[in-house]
Computed example of a mutant assay.
Amino acid sequence: MLELILPGYEPFDQETQTFGKVVKPTKIKLEHSLIAISKWEQIWHKPLLKLMDEGTLTDEEFFDYMYCMIVGSFDKVEFFKRLDDHLLKKVTDYINDPATASRVFTIGDDDKGKPETLTSELIYAYLAIARIPFDPCEKWNIKRVFMLIELYTVKTNPPKKMSNEEIRRWQKKENERRKKELHTKG
Rank of each mutant, 00 (worst) to 15 (best):
G8C: 07
V77R: 13
E138K: 02
Q17I: 03
Y124S: 05
P11K: 11
D13W: 01
T58W: 10
I132P: 00
G8Y: 08
L48R: 00
R131Q: 12
E31Y: 02
Y65P: 00
R82W: 05
T184D: 05
W140Y: 15
F146R: 00
L30G: 00
I107S: 06
M1G: 07
Y67Q: 12
K155Q: 14
N175T: 11
I37T: 04
L2W: 00
W170R: 04
M66L: 14
K160A: 14
I167R: 14
E181T: 05
R103I: 10
K29V: 06
Q17E: 15
C137G: 03
E31Q: 14
S163E: 11
F80G: 09
T92Q: 12
E181Y: 14
T18M: 11
E181W: 13
V145D: 00
D109A: 09
V91L: 07
L118C: 11
D53A: 14
N164P: 03
K46Y: 04
N96R: 14
G55H: 06
I129A: 12
T92K: 13
L30Q: 01
T92W: 02
A130D: 07
T92I: 15
I95A: 03
Y126Q: 06
L87G: 03
F19R: 10
E10M: 12
D59T: 14
D64L: 06
K39A: 09
S163M: 09
D53T: 13
T16L: 08
G113P: 05
L51I: 03
H45P: 04
K179I: 09
L87F: 05
T106K: 09
L57G: 02
K50V: 10
D64A: 14
K21Y: 07
K76N: 08
L30K: 02
S73V: 06
S120M: 02
N96I: 03
K173W: 09
F12S: 12
A128D: 15
L49S: 05
G8A: 06
K173C: 09
G108Q: 02
E3K: 10
I167L: 13
P158G: 03
I167Q: 12
T56L: 09
Y9T: 10
E138I: 00
P133D: 10
Q171K: 15
D84H: 13
K161R: 12
I37C: 02
E121A: 15
Q14H: 10
Y9A: 14
D85R: 06
W44M: 04
L6G: 04
A130K: 00
I37M: 05
M1A: 10
S102W: 11
M52H: 07
D110G: 15
P133A: 06
N141C: 03
D85P: 01
Y152C: 11
I95R: 02
G113L: 05
N175P: 01
E150W: 00
K46S: 08
Q17V: 03
V71I: 15
F146G: 01
I132M: 14
E166D: 14
E176Q: 14
D109V: 08
Y152D: 15
I132W: 00
L151N: 04
I123L: 08
